[in-house]
């Protein structure tokens, strides 16, 4: 446990400059956007030049870029992401309202791709070079070439339009009044297609890493020893080879989180899931740049936190990680 804490402290300190760079980056993008917050506000309410002038003054928009960056950082430090003109609400509230849906979608899709991907990877890696292995490898490559949004549309055509098994949009039946288990079931039914569309594509990635890792482990001496001991093939594959090939997949879990978040933007738009990604698309179409940049910031923080959790998990799994720092 002590190893994990040392690692945690080091990574937390390391993520501060990274986050600062992201904030400066979003500020620069905000500056590059045509028009400012006053323009957006006047666009919805109307007003004369005098009002515009006084609003600029009271919102501090007549200050220099450096002062405004400082003010931006100061408000972010207070978890204040600004005000969304489109929703007429603080950006923080809008984002936190949508966040659970995205987390649910991402979590389920990650579980699907990780679970099924590693299982198929074990099947492929159990006998490298076999027909099954070649079939799965090429099949996974083909899956990886599929654009997520298109897979979503194809799934909609098959399972929603033709077979009518699943609803094609939304996260739950509107105003159904369902509670408890019935509501959970309803949400699961709505999320089945988006989770499949998002998860199946990343499945290929885990399959390929698992297979490559197993091919590597097969050459190790301890596998030969296990074989010489007369262990059954099944036991060697599962307890010795697959187990040791699993570690790189855990690292991938963190690295893929950013790509997953990006992918969920499109998937949520296809299935009208009211999550962070759909919010990003709404922000783009209504030209609400502060909202869009707020989403980017929240996503960056999420990616950092997910990677942190994965690293700690990794340290718990592999006793070699961080052992040297503890001694130092």
């Amino acid at each position: 446990m002590r190893r994990a804490f040392i690692l945690l402290r080091r990574r937390l300190i390391g993520s501060i400059p990274v986050l600062l760079i992201v904030v400066i980056g979003t500020f620069l993008l905000l500056e590059a956007a045509p028009g400012d917050a006053v323009d957006a506000y006047i666009g919805t309410t109307g007003g004369d030049a005098g009002l515009i002038e006084s609003l600029r003054q009271s919102w501090g928009l007549d200050q220099s870029a450096g002062t405004r960056l400082a003010a931006y950082l100061w408000s972010l430090a207070h978890l204040d992401l600004g005000y969304s003109v489109t929703f007429s609400r603080p950006i923080r509230d809008v984002i936190f309202e949508r966040l659970p849906n995205t987390l649910l979608l991402m979590g389920s899709a990650t579980a699907l791709s990780f679970g099924l991907g590693s299982a198929l990877g074990i099947v492929a890696g159990a006998r490298p070079g076999s027909f099954r292995d070649r079939f799965l490898s090429i099949g996974s490559l083909a899956l990886y070439a599929v654009p997520g949004f298109w897979l979503g549309l194809v799934l909609t055509v098959i399972f929603s339009v033709q077979l009518r098994w699943f609803p094609s949009s939304g996260i739950e039946t509107i105003a159904s009044g369902k509670t408890g288990f019935a509501r959970t079931l309803d949400i699961a039914q709505h999320l089945a297609l988006p989770v499949a569309a998002l998860g199946v594509i990343y499945l290929a990635l885990y399959l390929r890493i698992m297979r490559a890792g197993m091919a590597e482990v097969w050459r190790m001496d301890f596998v030969l020893a296990a074989r010489a001991k007369g262990l059954s093939r099944r036991r060697i594959v599962l307890r010795h080879v697959a187990r040791n090939a699993l570690l790189p997949l855990v690292t991938m879990l963190g690295l893929q989180s950013a790509a997953m978040l990006g992918g969920s933007v499109v998937i949520e738009s296809v299935f009208s899931v009211p999550g962070l990604g759909r919010l990003a698309q709404e922000a783009v179409s209504s030209r609400d740049t502060p909202l869009l940049l707020g989403i980017i910031l929240v996503c960056a923080v999420m990616v950092i936190v997910i990677n942190l959790v994965v690293d700690i998990f990794y340290a718990v799994l592999d006793p070699r990680v961080g052992a040297s720092e503890e001694a130092a």
Binding site: P17, V18, L19, I21, V22, G25, L29, A32, A33, A258, A259, L261, G262, G263, V265, V266, A280, Q281, V284, R287, T289, L292, L293, I295, I296, C299, A300, V303, I304
Partner: peptide, 23 residues
């Protein structure tokens, strides 16, 4: 390398979305 880290932290697709929509 910290700048590289920062770019890796932001989902690439969101960054592209924001960049295109702003410019």
């Amino acid at each position: 390398m910290r700048i590289t880290d920062a770019f890796q932290t932001v989902p690439g697709f969101l960054l592209a979305l924001a960049f295109v929509s702003v410019i």
